[in-house]
Design a protein around this nucleic acid. Structure first.
Length: 832
RNA sequence: GGGCGAGUGGUGGAAUGGCAGACACGUGGGACUUAAAAUCCCAUGGCUGAAUAAGCCGUGUGGGUUCGACUCCCACCUCGCCCACCA
């Protein structure tokens, strides 16, 4: 019992020390190279579980490691403090979001403190603080004046039960997450950021992000969704009107046998006017409106449509084709109108089949003869064009280009590029967010608030009961204001900004968190950014990272920052799973760190969390396995303790000295490479475990030798060999288990913090010393092993292998075909 | 439907063309103890075998490349994640 390490005392002692000495404080005037290590700032929810901990522990280990590698490290932390949960809690528990947020921040900070996770707390920011959101509003105005902000009518998720607007994440399988009512679409006038202007650059510059995980880049690429194609114009018969559609398959234009409009298409209104089909069409439109956007989007709804009563003219052959309206066409993508080619598009095929629309084969399937009457599905592959006038016989691949150019020349259409990326809807009909700094004046219209009048402060006193409009609407003191242009009476915008706006620029604010004059200090930002290492969950792979990249590019264009991309290197850690599901409060499978830290200490929790598996992958939490980390730390404690108490043997045996030196060097190399590469904490820790096992084994062997030889040297022991190995262990372990290693480091006679110590170098010469094992295979199967000096030549390897007793017995009476020799590694004897 | 990732002992995982199962967890046995816990030591992929002799099998399935494949290529199966009627 006496030997078990007193984690409570030690951890308290060093946490206080680090806080007092401000260990992780960035030194602005340091000559060391900079390293900006950033963890995605969290939303302050009630309390952290061990799953959250993974993110902070990884970041802390990296920050401490880089500090020891000689970098001037910047590791700031802040709070993404606006958002829905606080507002929902306000509705439910009648606590003001400001108070609940403050309480949560307090609790989380104390948890981070107890984990031994260090930040430069002097740079703490909170996005719900007026000092911060003033600049979020400033960002809005900058985009507004640059023409990157506009207002238009758009659909929002509307819960009829709660009478409120929902964020996409709150819509679960088409229903409200709180009351389970079917979510409807409702039209509201909303503010947008024109991120689509940057679509191509956001796509192209992914190439610059060499140190981002490939999968994140692929997700962004898919999200931006660039596709090349053409706009093709169809004249409406009997009307002075042209409908344009977008297609990526101009090669199939001769097979277009009908055209389809999205129900939301503005032309639908014109058709209805004066149409004999008016009632039927209206009924249909009503029905489609009743279908939730979720179902429509996710293809849960059968394709359904109605003939408009109108015809359009296919420009390439002047054929008259019917114009339909159908639920399977998306209004938001392309032009909201598509040319239907049932022979070569599965969706059009299904729809055409249902409504008996005609079908024309225009691409020949090289595999079989396509017969319009007998096709059971569309042929979407490549082949030669048929029934396509002058383009017959052309390959479909070439025809795509040729027909597109030919139509462009003849004013039938235009080559174009389309993106799936939509503009960023930033309006939220919510209270707990940054107010949009816009004023509506009867005389002047939409007027932006003047920069010098920022921030537009959120009023504190508010009625939270959801009523379907922003809660700010009811606050007369807030909405009534003077027009910034004419000074007359005007009303404020009552919507607040999406919290993704807050988090799209926070990494800039950390460089000058208290600056009252500017959003950020340009000189500091240009010195410290891009962020060297960004760490966070893969769930932010698309939105947050895309928005941050967008805002950085906008600021770059305005000359506010001198870089195109905000995050140089990105690491996305996996989730912690418990009982088969992501650890979360709602699933009831959270493991609280508080009790684990009380029982085993923060170092144990940290080591286990990092040891659990590759950090980029999901991992199953196992409470019992935590004990393994605890046992390991105790083993380190005891091993170092026996040295400190002069109870360990003096390592004198030459062979044992060599073994210790070699293993220490191997492990220094392994841990260093694991940390420098892609954060293989699990194998780094396992190799430190091996080093500790080796030290113990060497100690046991030496003790045995001492007993056998009757050696005794009480009192005056020379521990330089053992001490070197123990010191290596302690240093290598320190980024992962900082408290116990600080304690041991001090006990070993060092004055300064272990984190002021330089990370050890390894000696390649020692690694290359001595004999190495060489494998001998016969026909690729391991048959024997020999030890040879490193660098032995091929001939001696061959001879040694052939003279091996075991191998000899295998070779008796067999004929050797050839021998493969890989120096320092293996000999493979291939038999006939 | 598309994209990405994964599949290795009882479990988490290691090995990225060259000794499969490092390091741990668990389990079994032993030591210590009046006893238990803790700790320490030994064993631990499967099969044949008295064996700590020897051998065979073995990284989701089937094929291929190679002197040699968990690793590379092709096809398939299963699971997970992201996107999804994007014309």
């Amino acid at each position: 019992m006496e030997d078990r390490y007193p984690h409570r005392e030690i951890e308290k002692k060093w946490q206080e020390f680090w806080q007092k000495s401000k260990l992780m404080k960035m030194a602005p005037s340091s000559a060391k190279p900079k390293f900006y290590c950033l963890m995605m700032f969290p939303y302050p929810s009630a309390s952290l579980h061990v799953g959250h901990g993974r993110n902070y522990i990884i970041g802390d280990a990296v920050a401490r490691f880089m500090k020891m590698r000689g970098y001037n490290v910047l590791a700031p932390m802040g709070w993404d403090a606006f958002g829905l949960p606080a507002e929902n809690a306000a509705i439910k528990n009648n606590v003001h979001p400001k108070d609940s947020t403050a309480n949560n921040i307090k609790k989380m900070k104390s948890q981070l403190y107890e984990w031994g996770v260090l930040y430069d707390w002097g740079r703490e920011i909170s996005s719900s603080n007026p000092d911060y959101y003033k600049w979020t509003q400033w960002l809005f105005l900058k985009l507004y004046h640059k023409g990157l902000t506009y207002k238009k009518e758009a659909s929002v998720n509307w819960c009829p039960g709660c009478r409120t607007v929902l964020a996409n994440e709150q819509v679960i399988n088409g229903a409200c997450e709180r009351c389970a009512s079917q979510v409807k679409q409702k039209k509201l006038k909303q503010w947008f950021f024109k991120i689509t202007d940057y679509a191509q650059r956001l796509l192209d510059d992914l190439e610059l992000l060499k140190e981002w995980p490939e999968r994140v880049k692929i997700m962004q690429r898919n999200w931006i969704g660039r596709s090349e194609g053409s706009f093709i114009d169809f004249k409406v018969e009997g009307m002075n009107k042209t409908l344009s559609c977008f297609t990526t398959r101009p090669d199939t234009i001769f097979g277009a046998t009908y055209m389809v409009l999205a129900p939301e298409h503005p032309f639908v209104g014109e058709i209805i006017k004066g149409s004999p089909e008016k009632v039927r069409i209206n009924d249909f439109l009503e029905k489609i409106k009743g279908q939730s956007s979720f179902d429509r989007q996710f293809g849960q709804v059968e394709k359904e449509g109605i003939f408009s009563g109108r015809y359009v003219i296919n420009p390439v052959n002047n054929e008259k084709i019917p114009l339909w309206i159908a639920n399977y066409v998306l209004f938001e993508y392309g032009t909201g109108a598509v040319m239907a080619v049932p022979a070569h598009d599965q969706r059009d095929f299904e729809f055409g089949n249902k409504y008996n629309l005609s079908l024309q084969v225009v691409i020949d399937d090289p595999g079989c003869d396509l017969e319009a009457s007998s096709m059971s599905c569309a042929f979407e592959g490549e082949g030669e064009l048929v029934n396509s006038a002058r383009f017959n016989g052309t390959g479909s691949k070439e025809a795509k280009e040729e027909i597109a150019l030919w139509m462009q020349k003849n004013n039938m259409g235009k080559k174009t590029i389309n993106y799936k990326l939509r503009d960023w809807l930033i309006s939220r009909q919510r209270y707990w967010g940054a107010p949009i700094p816009i004023v509506y004046c009867d005389k002047c219209g939409i007027v932006p608030v003047k920069e010098e009048n920022l921030p537009v402060e959120l009023p504190h006193s508010i009625e939270f009961r959801p009523s379907g409009v922003s809660p700010l609407q009811d606050n007369k003191d807030f909405i009534n204001t003077a027009c910034p242009a004419c000074g007359g009476p005007a009303r404020r915008e009552v919507d607040t900004m999406d919290t993704f706006v807050d988090s799209s620029w926070y990494y800039l604010r950390f460089l000058s968190p208290d600056n009252a004059e500017k959003a950020f200090d340009v000189e500091m930002v240009n010195k410290w950014l891009p962020v060297d290492q960004y760490i966070g969950g893969v769930e932010h792979a698309i939105l947050h990272l895309l928005y941050s990249r967008f805002i950085t590019k906008v600021f770059c264009d305005m000359g506010f920052v001198g870089f195109k991309e905000p995050f140089e290197r990105l690491f996305t850690q996996g989730m912690i799973i418990k009982d088969g599901a992501k650890m979360s409060k709602s699933k009831g499978n959270v493991v609280s760190p508080d009790k684990l830290i009380a029982d085993y200490g923060a170092d144990t929790v940290r080591v286990y969390t990092l040891f659990i598996g590759p950090p980029e992958k999901d991992a199953e939490w196992n409470d019992r396995a935590v004990e393994g980390a605890w046992r390991f730390l105790n083993k380190v404690w005891k091993t170092a303790g026996s040295l400190l108490k002069s109870a360990a043997p003096e390592i004198r045996d030459e062979k044992l000295i060599k073994r210790l030196k070699k293993k220490s060097n191997e492990v220094i190399k392994k841990v260093t490479l694991d940390m420098e590469g892609s954060f293989h904490f699990n194998t780094a820790i396992s190799s430190i475990m091996e080093l500790v096992n080796e030290i113990k084994s060497v100690m046991d062997k030496q003790a045995k030798i001492d007993i056998e030889s009757g050696y005794s040297n009480e009192g005056k022991k020379d521990y330089k060999n053992l001490k070197a190995a123990v010191e290596s262990t302690v240093i290598l372990l320190s980024p992962f288990a900082p408290h116990i290693t600080e304690e041991l480091w001090q006990a070993l006679g060092n004055k300064a913090s272990i984190f002021e110590k330089k990370w050890p170098e390894y000696d390649e010469l020692i690694l290359k010393e001595g004999f190495i094992p060489v494998i001998i295979q016969i026909n690729g199967k391991l048959r024997s092993k020999i030890e040879l000096a490193r660098g032995s030549d091929e001939a001696s390897l061959k001879t040694a292998a052939l003279n091996d007793e075991k191998i000899k017995s295998y070779l008796k009476g067999k004929e050797i075909k050839k021998i493969i020799v890989i120096p320092d590694k293996l000999v493979n004897i291939v038999l006939v």
